[in-house]
Amino acid sequence: MEAGHSPFMSNIRVLVAKPGLDGHDRGAKVIARALRDAGMEVVYTGLRQTPEMIVHAALQEDVQVIGLSILSGAHMAIVPRVLRLLRENGMDDVAVVVGGIIPDVDAAELKKQGCAGVFQPGAALEEITGFVRSVARAR
């Protein structure tokens, strides 16, 4: 990362994670790079992370935001577990943002359970980076 790239540099730390068995990491990688180019510090977990591994990494890396990328349809089994583990670990201040193939009805339910935001296919990178920045600074 170039110094002085952004006034927000190193203020915002984000964990980008791929939970579940899904190997489709194109979106996660593009988002990780876009967040980095927008001046945030990004930790990418790689594939096949359990909710426990993700929450542990979020704690170790002291991030304000967790971005979860799920394209396999398993989001309703995975995201609520991440939210619950965060609460159990007293990490309610970490915002969870989900991206992937998430039907409207599931997106509404996930937000009700405490997801800060859900992004569906076709969302613009600028919209996503702006949203992540806003939830991170609100914390």
């Binding site: 579940g20 068995l21 899904d22 359990t50 396999s72 349809g73 398993a74 309703m76 089994a77 995975i78």
Partner: peptide
């Protein structure tokens, strides 16, 4: 489905929520 692709039986802990989905 993903558990089959990953060589996991349907009752494996990591298959939870993924059986028959993809």
């Amino acid at each position: 489905d993903l558990p089959t692709l990953m060589g996991l039986d349907a009752d494996h802990a990591n298959a939870l929520g993924e059986v028959g989905k993809c």
